[in-house]
Design a protein around this nucleic acid. Sequence first.
RNA 1: CGGGGAGUGGCUCAGCCUGGUAGAGCACCUGGUUCGGGACCAGGGGGUCGCAGGUUCAAAUCCUGUCUCCCCGACCA
Length: 568
Amino acid sequence: MRMSKSFVPTLKEVPADATVASHQLLVRAGYIRQLAAGIYSILPLGQRSILKITRIVREEMNAIGAQEFYLPALNPREIWEESGRWTVMGENMFRLKDRKGADLCLAMTHEEIFTVLARAELRSYRQLPQSWYQIQTKFRDEPRPKSGLLRVRQFTMKDSYSFDLNREGLDASFEKHREAYVRIFDRCGLRTIQVEAHSGAMGGTGSTEFMVPTDAGEDLIASCEKCGYAANTEKAQSKVETPPKYASSAAIEDFATPGVVTIEALAAKPYSVPAEQQLKTLIYVADDKPVIAIVRGDDQLNEAKLQTATGAQVLRPAHPEEIVKWMGAHPGSLGGVAVSLNVLIDQRLVGQSGMVTGANRDGFHLSNVSVARDLAHAKPADLRTVNAGEGCPRCGNPLTVGKALEVGHIFKLGTRYSETMGARVLDEGGREVPIVMGSYGIGIERILAGAVELHHDGDGIRMPLAIAPFHLALLPLQMQDAKVVEAAEKLYADLSAAGVEVLLDDRDERAGVKFKDADLIGIPLRIAVGKKGLAEGKIEWKPRGVPSVELVALGDVVAKATAAVRGK
RNA sequence: CGGGGAGUGGCUCAGCCUGGUAGAGCACCUGGUUCGGGACCAGGGGGUCGCAGGUUCAAAUCCUGUCUCCCCGACCA
């Protein structure tokens, strides 16, 4: 491609509203432009990268026998009602009405539609297994789009779905996807780690996320360097020592704590109750039913874990009015003692006594609370969020916690959709059984953004060769020198004929401008054709990110470039 | 949804406090000089100052409302 005829709007200055590196650089390098919050136009350079990513994805999906579909993004309400997710998705789903007033939505994912196809056509175990996928635009009305391409409202997802007769089949389909994902991210130049994850609104029995470790990410993952354990903190566990430090068999007593509504205030003088001696009581609404969650005062409740423990589809904090109605007191004076509501208590608190909690009476707390005696009605569950430094649940080595970007997520759905939507086949014995499903997603734009987060420097992007918009930038340094132009044009023709994707910067610009733009855009290889080198029949060869240039004879350039590009 | 910040030419911003009818750099166009890491000189085009009301002789500037964008939080009671 010729730069002089291309739309590559690079920017010298950093866009004011971009904070993360990938956002700044993708805008500056002319890959993307923002249209609205969380909505981006992909420009020609970006589209070339996206096409390379999707090509890699297609190759690897096809390689495991998956078949490509293309399903509607515009969906009727009815199928989402069938799965129950018309309600579950809540405000995250874009909804609209057609001219007749019928409800439609823009699909956030495609379990429902694929299941509709499966139930209509799959009748026999002989037709299984099937792996179906598509590369489609998804819509999610994120409460807070941010960080450029990292959290958006419209994006491209490769989503696939497996249909098996039984759990063993699902396990096999799941493992095939896992291996395909490893190859995809590896080929795209992303270092990823696999972590155990929370399944959330997808339902199902188990899931693995593929994470790119980067501070630009929004997830927190806990990992163990010693044994390789890694999990999203929504799911991660740890070994924590919880000796019965405050043990007491004394009877419960209430004591006045006027105005004390925080853990910190109760920990301060004159009460001086350490946070670890307090019970933190939180009120939630799980599928319209109140539930009380209790964790230690210095622990953090993990909503994802609470959702898992309650089995709820929709979980939200209770409103203040609801809390007063159910508990008889305001937040800050709440406790789980002697209440008839459903109570869950963090498992580390089992066996503790001598604890302090709210009395469900404004301005009062209870002391000498024994979990076994006074909270016998509370069900133990894993509710707390792990902290860095706590012991790995497998080997005890201290865990590290770091930020990461989710680029892929694979789920064992099981029969959650096939049962609610009636997708069944007959097995060998002629019995009707629900199809066992898996669901597998990859965020295409996130791969692009993740690659930039991982590969950039002060000069711009250092795009991995496999997903770079071009392999090689060819820079004639003196456009007014006919010999330089002639040599560059010949190289352009020869390299292109050899299959090298070349961006020829034939603009009438100074050399510095061309160097800067090539670096910013992140093209992996660079050839500079200048009159000095040309006098000796040589060009300058420089891979992006390598500090020094190499002089290469004109006649050797094509072979060198094809060798560098081969297989990518 | 809560809190904070910001909307002025394509981009980055100044001007606003203390009202007097809009400016710089970059980008763009023309001419010239330059020509190996974002050149220089001269000339030029381009802005209903987010939108709507209000105050005033006069509003980018003050007041009210509204829209949009960015950041933090949205569980810690």
